[in-house]
Every structure is written in structure tokens, then in C-alpha cells.
Nucleic acid binder design. Sequence first.
DNA 1: CAACATAGTTTTTGGCCTGAATTATTATTG
DNA 2: CAATAATAATTCAGGCCAAAAACTATGTTG
Lengths: 413, 413
Amino acid sequence: MLDTQSPPNGCGPLLTLGTAQTKSMRQQVFEHVRAAGRATRTDVIQALGISAGSATALTAEMINAGLLREVESIPRETGRGRPAVALEVVPETHAVIGIKLSEKMHSAVLTDFAGNTRATAVLETSTGPKPLDDMLAEVAALIQDVRDSAGTQLSAVAAVGIGLSGIVDHQAGTVPWSPLLAERNCDFATAFREKFDLPIHLDNDANMLTLAELWFGAGRAKSDFAVITIEQGVGMGLVIGNRLYRGARGMGLELGHTKVQLDGALCRCGRRGCLEAYLADYALAREAATALHLQPHESQSPNALLAALFTQAKSGDEAAQTIFRRAGRYLAVGLANIVQLFDPALIIISGERMQYDYLYAEEVLSEMHRLTLNDGRTPCAVETHAWGDLVWARGATALALSAVTDQAIAQLA
Amino acid sequence: MLDTQSPPNGCGPLLTLGTAQTKSMRQQVFEHVRAAGRATRTDVIQALGISAGSATALTAEMINAGLLREVESIPRETGRGRPAVALEVVPETHAVIGIKLSEKMHSAVLTDFAGNTRATAVLETSTGPKPLDDMLAEVAALIQDVRDSAGTQLSAVAAVGIGLSGIVDHQAGTVPWSPLLAERNCDFATAFREKFDLPIHLDNDANMLTLAELWFGAGRAKSDFAVITIEQGVGMGLVIGNRLYRGARGMGLELGHTKVQLDGALCRCGRRGCLEAYLADYALAREAATALHLQPHESQSPNALLAALFTQAKSGDEAAQTIFRRAGRYLAVGLANIVQLFDPALIIISGERMQYDYLYAEEVLSEMHRLTLNDGRTPCAVETHAWGDLVWARGATALALSAVTDQAIAQLA
DNA sequence: CAACATAGTTTTTGGCCTGAATTATTATTG
DNA sequence: CAATAATAATTCAGGCCAAAAACTATGTTG
């Protein structure tokens, strides 16, 4: 039987941008001042396109609440009218801690409300997976340490951000799997809150590094860019439309497991042809023994092996060089694929492995550009940053800082 | 000399989400009604979280303006209180035309304000690049045709959307390069407006198809998904956060030119190892001659060649099968790389080539899943749609419809 | 010092949305 | 068959936010 009055099924996306709720004007003003470091009311007016009256009202409110303050020094050179008064964030209002957990050592950073690093701490630790409780004990020591060195003025920490490698569910605050933790499907956030009574923000370490670039680094002025990390594995973070993109299913973005060779080298994930299988520590190390003419029983630590391999390559050894060269070529393929699929304005390459400069040599970049279409447009920029773990930790503060800011502004109204 | 008072350089993203300006409540209400096909005021209240008073005011305004109307039929089965009155878009308010330009034939669709297809038209055309003027003449014929068959009620067309293959700058309305046009760096939009005096929205054809899925197809309920097209080339469109992602530099996303093999098969872009070089028409055709044991002088049209190759493969010929099988495996690699880099909720594969079912066979999908990490999560869904050119044209209407809607709502206030 | 230029404040006004009270329209129920 | 409950929609007063415009503040320039 024909349904004579079937309702139309409509058209257009069924989902609205629910998560991307508009930021309040207050928040935009605050964030503009913090982003600029210092800004006059007129700067704010022009940047946000609001009226002078709003600027006065909103800034007055925040000055009153102690979030902003006027700067005394007036570095105005030449100007006719009334001199502008710069505003800045009051740094001591809140403090947050960012922590990067790693194999050999953890790092922590305490950041004030203006984003300045006020104290840092590191903690040597035992390698290998450990129980969550042990990890939280180490976290406690780090927090204690960084709090102490920051002094009393900033002792009231408002939130903590933690980044660690593995599969991390940012939303739920859980860690389905991490090389650092003995347990699987670890409810990290809940355990943390029970122990510390502090808001906690967890994320994948590659995302943390990406946030570091977005908040403090080369990504600040870009709306769309990618960050690649080459360490034990190969990680990636993506910023799309000025915000971190986490994927639809909340999985990390796994550049390391994109395929660059059908039936290629064996990866530790059990599959063949992953980029990581050509680029990561273990991949280089397993060929190093051959190139260095080591006997099977002469085992060394992977790091020592890599260092030796690098020296060998630098001194002109063909076999050693070819290992790095192949890794570099596959890296170029991986980067080229990112450019083709995502067309970022910038790619940032970061990580310890960058010290083996074969991997970020001009060769690799020019090979990447050869592998990508570029119809007369400016080719995608590539930068390399060989930053230490403290920068990762700083990225972790960004997550916490953003949440604390949201809250501080929200309770103004 | 030390600068004793260097201003802080701040932290946080420097760019705000300028483009993602908040939609007005009016617009959200309208779009919800259109997306649902029909919706009561109460539906709107719940979906958008607004107050009852707002719903009344906003809908009344739009009903008054003739954009919405109440539906007479009340299909309420069981309910206690006052029966709800459904609202729907008045379809005849505006009409838009979407056009897909292709090698052998163009297609056009006329869509009403509710997104219903009201008329279609196709136009056989000569293959090969042609001057812009000739192309616009063909567009004129199509517009005339589709307008005529839509009847007088919808003759007032408010905007046109056009999709064509090649490099298209949506923002500027120019076409740096297209296989369909003789000129390079064609100012298509300006020429169009001079000739037709109508708003025009240009885009890459892969983006058009993606919009078709977002507005009318399987993507409506997904916030993040990818669309792959396999025809002459291999194209891709990406929806991220409920909106079409166009890349930072406005280049198309070129899945076809991602590298799946270092130093692999030669692509028509001049590079080696592009996915397209294993998957596109010309790639299959150039191996077909060998498999079919043709003499060099026995040249056939590429299409005939492919059809013959397919029959041959179906009848059990090993050489023919291996061509498709290899193409399928590389397609699996390309899809796996998308999954690893973007983690979409859904991949939609579309295009004529899908008739050669080797390419979307279960084999390919299972190979793709074998190639991707999945830590216990639901694997990325894959759908295949073998849709005709009219669907592409319909996608083109989405772009125009969206712009016309914005305008219609804006001038309400 | 007057004229001007720029920065910031105050006040008024209007848009937009919420919340509460009210009206409208139906089913249920003794 | 009222009385009651339930749901939908409207009306209206009030609050928040931001723009517009008039005004005040504070400097430079000639």
C-alpha cells in the first residue's frame, strides 16, 4: 500500500556544531589579551570588532575580578591623542601543572595564568610498564617538587594536564593501553582525582606536543597544521580550524602506522609496511647490527647502537648511510601523504630522533616536495624542532590552562 | 643592551575561529526544520535547547515571511494534551540549480528550498578541453532546459552551484586548472556573473559529491567522514566537524596522488607511485592491452578496453584478474592510510569505476581492516555508492542552497 | 594656548532570549 | 459528562549583551 502522505525526510546535516559553542565575548577579550601578551582596549576593539563601550565594560569587569590589570609602563613612541593603556593578564591568579610521562624520565611544568613557565621538575624513573598506583606516586612526587620550587605565591594549583604515549581517551580520561602502564583500560582520571582532588586532563603525548605548538610555538599563527614526532614510535597531531582534531572515534592519529610499502618491513604492531617500521628506533636498530658488522652475541643498548650507527654513517660508511637514507625517503613519503590528504599550512617535525640529521636533511624535504603536487602554489612549509620533554609538559599545561580559563571567565557572569 | 621591559609575547592561538561565526537562532531553527523535513515547535525546543517563547517568536516570524508553514495533516496516534502542529519549509520560496560538468556529458538539477529535486537535465557534450565561453554556452543551455522543465512556479532561480574536476579555488571562484577547460587560471565566477547575473558557487567535483553525502546521503548523521571517488582520477572530500574541509591552502585533497609505492608506477602527474597510477582508468587500460594479448596496432577506446578486461577477469583469466587485484590492494592501502591519519567515522566510496566490483569487493575492505590498527574499537565503516552524475549535481545545489538560506534568513532581521 | 587626534567612559537604545503565567486543545477518568 | 491531567503554543515582563552616540580624558602639534 502506498503511503500517500509520507513525511519528507528533509535535507542538510543532521548534527549541528554542538561542541563548538560560541565563546562569550568576555572570554574572547581575555584570550586576545593573553595571546597578545599585552593589548590596549583599542587593540581589542579592532581585533574582535566590538564597540568601545563593550571593551570598557568587559575589561573593567575582568580588572575588577582580578584577572586583568593595566600596565604602568607606556612604551608609546609617537602618537597624537590620549595614550593607550595596555592590559595584561594577572599571572598569579591561577596556576596549572603539565606533566609528560615517559619511559626514562618524567617532566613537569608549572605555568601561571599568563602562560609563563614558573617552575619545572624532572624525575628519573624505571623503564617499563608499571602499575597505575606506582605511576601516581611518581606523579605526586613531581607535583610536590614543582609546587615547592614555584613558591607559595603559586601554590594553589587549579588543574593538572598529563600527556603520555599510547592510546588515550581524552574524553573519558581513561588509558586503554600505554607502554608506560601495566594495566590495560586504566581509569587514570578517576584514580587521579581520588588521590589529588584536582581537575585532571589527560591526552596522548603527540596531542600534547601539538598543543604546545598551538599555544606557545610555531603553530600559534596557523589555523591548520600538523605535528610529527619521531621517537620510539612515530606520532602525529593535527590542528584543524584552530583547534586540536582528535578524530571521530577518539583514536589517535597514527602516522606511524600508515602504510608506505605494501608487504614491507615488519612493524611492532604486527603489520607490514608501516612507516614506523622504517623510521623508529627499533627499526633502525635492527639493521644497525648488520651495518656495524656486530656478532650476534655483541648486543648493545638500542641507544648506543643508534649512536654508533650515526657516527659510522657520518664517517662515510655506505651501509650505515643507506639505513638513514632509506628511513629518510620513507619519511618523505609519509610527509607527502599528509600534504596530499590534508593540505596543511605547516608541518612541524619534532622529537629526539631529529638529532640524527639524516632524517630532516634537505634531501628529505626536497624529496617530499618532489612527491607532492604543487600547481604553482607556495609549497607546504616544514619546520623542525628538536625540543626536550619540558616542551611536551608545557603542552600539557595548555589543556589545563584552557579549562581553568573557561571556568574562571564563566563564573564571572 | 638588555631590554629591561620586553613585553611578554603571550600564549594561546593567535587566530580565533573567525570563519565559524555563530549561526543566528533563526537560522538554526530553520535548518533544523529543513533537516528534519517536518518538525513541531516542541521538537525545535528540545533539539536546540531554546525556550518555548523563542520558538513561537522565531517560527512566527518565518511563517510570516513565507519561509515556513504549518502542516495540516496531523499524524498523531496517541497523545494526551494539545496536539503539536508540525512545521515545514515552504519549498517554492526559492530555487537553486546545481550543475556537474564532465567529460562526456553535463548534468543539472533544480532544487527547491526544501531540498527536493524538481527538475533535471543532461547535455551530451564533446570531450576534451574547451574555451570558457563555449563551456558557459553549454551551461546556459542546461540552465534554460532545467528551468523550463521545472515550470513557472520555480523559475526564479536564486543561485547556481557548479562542480567540475580539476583544481578549483572555491573562495576566489577561479579555476587554476581543469581538464575540461582550455584556459588556465580561468576566472570562471566573474565570467559567469557577467553572463547570467546570478550568484555562483564553484567547487571541485569531489567536494560536491561530499556535500551531496552531507546534505542528502549517508553522511547526514556523521560529523566526520571521508568520500572517495574513483573515476578518471581518484578524488577525495572530507567532512570534519559537520563541515566540508577544504585544506589550508585551498588545494583539493588529493588521495589519488598519495604515494603507495616508492618509485612505483608512473602517474599522469609525472610522479611515481601515486595511488591513481594503479587505480584510474588509464592505469588499468595500459595494462589491459598486455593481458588481452592485443597487438600494438589493435587500439581500442579505453572504456571498451576496460570492459573487455573485466569480462576476461570474470571468466577466470589470471592475467586480467591480477590487474584488478593489484588495484584493489593499493586501494586498500589508500583507505587504510586515510583511516590512520583522520580516524573518520565512515568512508564512502563512490564513482563509476565501482561497477568493476573487484575494487570494492569484500577482499579490499577486509584487507583495509587488516592494514589498520583497531584496539578493540568498532572499525571504520565503509559504504559504497554507485551513484550517477545527478547526485553530483545535487551536491552542487547544496552549496547554493546553503548560501541562499543564509541570505534569506539574514534579511529577515 | 587653541586645535586636533586618539583613548576610554557613560548613557541610551534595541535585539534577543528566558521564565512565568496564560490560553488552547486533547485524552483520561470516575 | 464534567473535572482533571497532560501537552502545545502564546503572551508578556524582565535581564543581559552589545552597538551607537555623546561625552570625557589626555596627550601632540603649531
